[in-house]
């Protein structure tokens, strides 16, 4: 019951958090030079038509009024339209946000699958070959630019070996996209039994997910290793050995005690990658949310940028809420 009340309290707090985030990003984006009206009408526009368009867009009003108008629309579920795609931002993001989310989620899962075992191994055997691999990997992964790694992988696995689909988009153009349910092509195609779409989307996911996984396994490895080294040397681990507990059990308990730190780094990476995977999206023409927002910034297309900020803020807040619930489940010390 206490947990339900806790979640309700956290959710109620979401609204003021979102308003604060919108205010700050609104002010920041208005501070960027560039006039959408000029860009929309092109070089041949007269000052008069520009002024008319500005009035039409509400850009001539004072900043506080513009903000209130935006918030009012937002409250009615209207994120405005993008002048580049000429579509409502909400519709654009409904497709693009899941695209990014699908990419980033699989990328994170792969990063976990690489980072945690290597991190534990390097914490355990300070001199073993796996520890050496872990140490080397932590070093290299931190220094690899993700877009560079993506290009190398494309060169090897697409150009040279031809093992994967062409690195353009989320699915082959010849394949019908699955009916949208979650927005994840892999899941939607499975749900609708569209095997061709499933195969094609998996093929398209392989390289970008591999890139994200390989790069982001680095910080997860480091965090797992550092925390495990600490919990393995903690008094309770030493006492466990003094009580003759099998080493496997001592390690398992030490890992459980290291888990909160690992979850923290995962949640931070996850929230960050929604926008941070943009270079990967560009390399693979993914058509995701990050790419959408960057296009918006470059072209003074404010609504997509603000829409993206709101979506990723909501996403991060939900991730943090889930993380806090996980902490609550595994650490009794904060359960009060």
């Amino acid at each position: 019951m206490a947990v339900v009340r806790y979640i309700a309290g956290r959710l109620a707090f979401l609204v003021p958090q979102i308003i604060g985030i919108v205010l700050v990003s609104f002010l920041l984006i208005k501070a960027v030079p560039g006039d959408p009206a000029t860009l929309m009408l092109g070089p041949m526009a007269t000052p008069q038509t520009i002024a008319e368009l500005r009035a039409q867009l509400g850009l001539d009003k004072p900043l506080p009024v513009q903000f209130l108008i935006y918030v009012d629309k937002l409250a009615h579920g209207n994120l405005g339209t993008s002048w580049q795609t000429t579509k409502p931002v909400l519709d654009d993001l409904r497709v693009r946000f899941p695209a990014t989310l699908e990419l980033v989620t699989y990328g994170m899962l792969l990063a976990l699958a690489i980072g945690i075992p290597l991190g534990v191994a390097s914490a355990l055997g300070k001199r073993g070959p796996l520890a050496k691999l872990g140490g080397f990997y932590g070093l290299v992964a931190g220094a690899l630019p993700d877009f560079w790694l993506a290009l190398i992988l494309i060169y090897i696995f697409y150009s040279l070996l031809g093992w994967v689909a062409s690195p353009i988009g989320r699915i082959d153009v010849t394949v019908t996209t699955p009916h949208m349910i979650t927005g994840f092509y892999t899941i939607d195609s499975l749900l609708t039994g569209n095997w061709a779409a499933f195969r094609s989307s998996v093929h398209h996911l392989i390289l970008p997910v591999l890139t994200l996984g390989l790069v982001n396994a680095g910080p997860i490895l480091k965090m797992t290793q550092a925390t495990m080294e600490r919990t393995l040397e903690a008094d309770f681990s030493l006492y466990g050995r003094l009580c003759g507990l099998p080493e496997k059990l001592v390690i398992r308990r030490a890992f459980r005690n290291a888990l909160p730190s690992v979850i923290t780094i995962v949640s931070v990476l996850y929230g960050f990658l929604i926008g941070g995977a943009v270079l990967i999206e560009i390399v693979f023409s993914w058509g995701g949310a990050g790419q959408y927002a960057v296009q918006g910034v470059l072209n003074s297309d404010f609504n997509p940028v603000l829409g993206f900020v709101i979506f990723s803020a909501l996403f991060s807040l939900v991730v943090y809420l889930i993380v806090d619930l996980i902490y609550l489940a595994i650490d009794p010390r904060i359960r009060r």
């Binding site: 903690a234 008094d235 309770f236 030493l238 006492y239 466990g240 308990r253 459980r256 005690n257 595994i330 650490d331 009794p332 010390r333």
Partner: peptide, 9 residues
């Protein structure tokens, strides 16, 4: 207190 695992009953 340090000798007891904080996460276990």
């Amino acid at each position: 207190r340090g000798e007891l695992n904080p996460l276990l009953r």
